[in-house]
């Protein structure tokens, strides 16, 4: 519900959502909770938390190193759910978990869906579980977020959005996660292609790192996702007491850029 309510509220105000991604457990789960609350105070509309995995093949080096730090700090899937529960004590920020399949498979998929839902997780994005392999047998209160790539052909877009819930996540470029200097030229065309098939909000991510890029993407997307650029700041500060302050100082201008961008399409 939190995801739908957030997008409905923003749509009524004509605003684009800002989604922040961080790796859960980097540098540890206590810091993740503090960062989540700090990001909420920065005006972040939705938080994506990455469950660490040893072999994150859709991610670039920045997120991979974050996952390694989280694993070294002893982060487990159960620990991430406990962390969400702890965030929920004081916050109603919508939270989407971003994961590879194997850790969830190990936890037990049905059990994970049930426990994550009751911990207060609002959505789930599984990187390496395309709809083709997802029989949808497990019912959950969580929204199943689906990915669309620049290489996804139109008929496949329609098949994916038919299975999507909450919002659609458009991977704005071919490649792994990580900062890029430019926004892909094909962005607007693909977003429009997706809009033909669904009324769900469309989030755009992968490679966005500056307020200028964020503002450019905000012109045609319903939500802008920034991940690696934030994770990089977390990596730099680690357990410094200034971690939340410095990350907030980086995120605020990004949020500002998205919120003040004109909303056209």
């Amino acid at each position: 519900m939190r995801i739908d309510e957030t997008f409905a509220r923003l749509r009524a105000r004509g605003e684009t959502a800002f989604i922040a991604y961080i790796g859960a457990g980097d540098p540890n789960l206590a810091a993740t909770k503090a960062l989540a609350l700090a990001l909420e105070r920065c005006g972040v509309d939705l938080l994506e938390l990455g469950i660490p995995f040893s072999d994150p093949l859709a991610d670039g080096i920045v997120n991979q190193m974050a996952a390694q730090r989280a694993l070294h700090a002893g982060t487990t899937t159960r620990g991430v759910l406990d962390c969400v529960r702890a965030i929920r004590e004081t916050s109603e920020l919508p939270i989407v978990l971003y994961s590879y399949l194997n850790p969830l498979h190990s936890f037990g998929l049905a059990k994970f869906y049930a426990e994550a839902g009751s911990a207060g997780v609002d959505g789930l994005l599984i990187l390496d579980l395309p709809p083709d392999e997802d029989d949808g047998a497990v019912v959950s209160t969580m929204k199943r977020i689906r990915l669309i790539a620049p290489t996804t052909p139109p008929e496949r877009i329609a098949r994916i959005t038919a299975r999507a819930e909450g919002f659609v996540y458009y991977v704005s470029r071919e490649g792994v996660t990580g900062e890029q200097t430019t926004v892909a030229a094909s962005l607007e065309g693909q977003v429009n292609e997706i809009r033909k098939t669904t009324s769900l909000p469309i989030a755009v991510g992968f490679g966005i790192s500056t307020p200028e890029q964020a503002a450019e993407v905000a012109r045609c997307a319903d939500a802008v996702v920034v991940g690696s650029a934030i994770v990089k700041r977390i990596a730099k500060h680690g357990l410094d007491p200034t971690l939340c302050e410095d990350v907030s100082a980086f995120v605020r201008p990004l949020v500002e850029a998205v919120k003040t961008a004109p909303r056209p399409c």
Binding site: A58, L127, P130, D132, E133, A149, T151, I160, E174
Partner: peptide, 21 residues
Amino acid sequence: EHGHFGPYGGMFVPETLMTAL
């Protein structure tokens, strides 16, 4: 036709690769 050997195999990849595969 989807690459399954009983319960094994399949296509568990990020969306970017689905079309190429």
